[in-house]
Structure formats: C-alpha cells, structure tokens
Amino acid sequence: MSAPMANARTGSSGIKWFGGAIAAVLLAFSIFVATRSPASNAIEASPIVEHVAPAISGPTVAGGRFALRSYRGKFVLVNFFASWCASCAIEEPQLVRFSKSGIGKVLAVDFQDENGPARVFLSRYGASWPAVADPNGQIAIKWGVSAPPESFLISPSGVVLTKIVGPVTAKELRILVQVAKANGY
C-alpha cells in the first residue's frame, strides 16, 4: 500500500546507516558506563596533598596561641574535629594513643564550635595537644575540609602527605608514618 509515498523520502540504505550509527553509539555508551567503577562517594584526591601545608595559627580553645610552624621537623597529624561530631568521639582515644607513642605530634583544629564544649570534649579523653579554634571554619576552608573528622599527615618538611576522611586509628597512622619515611620524607 502506498509504497511510492513512503519510500520516496529516504533511501532505505540511508536509514539503515542511521540506525546502525545510533546502535553503535548506544553500544559504546553502554560499554563505557558498564566499565566505570562505582563512583558514588568516590574518595577524591585532595588538591593540597603533596603541597606545602596551609598555615594554621591562632588562638587555641584553651586560651593560648599556637602555630603549625612550630612543629616543623616532626611528623604532624592535623586533626579537624568538633565537640558536636559523633565520629570524632570514636577516634579521639586513637589520637591519644598516637600522640603518646611519640611517632608524631597532633595539632587539632576545632571546626565550627564553641571553646567551652571543645575543652570539655578534649579533657574527657585526656587529649593534651593544642587545639586551635576555628569558629567560622575559615581555616578548614584552606584545607578543603568538608565535615569533621578529617585529618592530614604532615611531613617534617611541612608537606601534606595524605588526607584521611573519617576516624583514624593509631595503628594505621604508625604504618603511614613508616611508609612515608620509607619514601624519603
């Protein structure tokens, strides 16, 4: 029926090519998508890793002042925490253990918090390291912090070695420092 009209428009080979092209694109798309590793919550490399650590200096929650500079020459764990953060409480004993082992120093940054609750929080776990107050989160921004707890391992020369999102453990920190030493830091 009405064949002339239907076929007058497009040569059948043209439409075959078109269909083939779309099929090829879809095939390529499917293979591409299927071979992606699941990207949800991908742990993204922090741009400050292997760069000189941004400066931290300012009043501490205890009332003094402190600067990251003064730890130059030692491995330092910069730990962003807050008294309102639940998983910070989980990692605190591990930080204490790391600090006591003498492998490296700990410098805490109190993210978007008040000094009083932070002092209570630290003393509860017997944390004796300096905690710089960051009530507006402006230090955290320089370090690319999204949500506490986040920690950064700093080499003795002041280079950021790695960023750790979520609670740390003393054991893993020890290994990290050992490996960093092995790599010449």
């Binding site: 009209m5 076929n7 439409i15 269909g19 099929a23 879809l26 095939l27 499917s30 299927a34």
Partner: peptide
C-alpha cells in the same frame, strides 16, 4: 545488578532500532 541492567538496556535499544529500521517505510507513511 548494574551489568545485567545495562545489558538489558542495550538489548531493548538494539531490538527497537532493528525493528524501527526494518519497518521504516511502514512507520513513516
């Protein structure tokens, strides 16, 4: 599940394209 679903997607697409192309004259009347 991902691999199974994307294969099914591809199957649906290829079947549809094949039928569309082979019935093109009927569909474009």
């Amino acid at each position: 599940l991902g691999d199974i679903l994307i294969s099914f997607f591809l199957l649906v697409c290829l079947v549809s394209i094949y039928l569309g192309v082979s019935n093109f004259s009927l569909l474009s009347q």
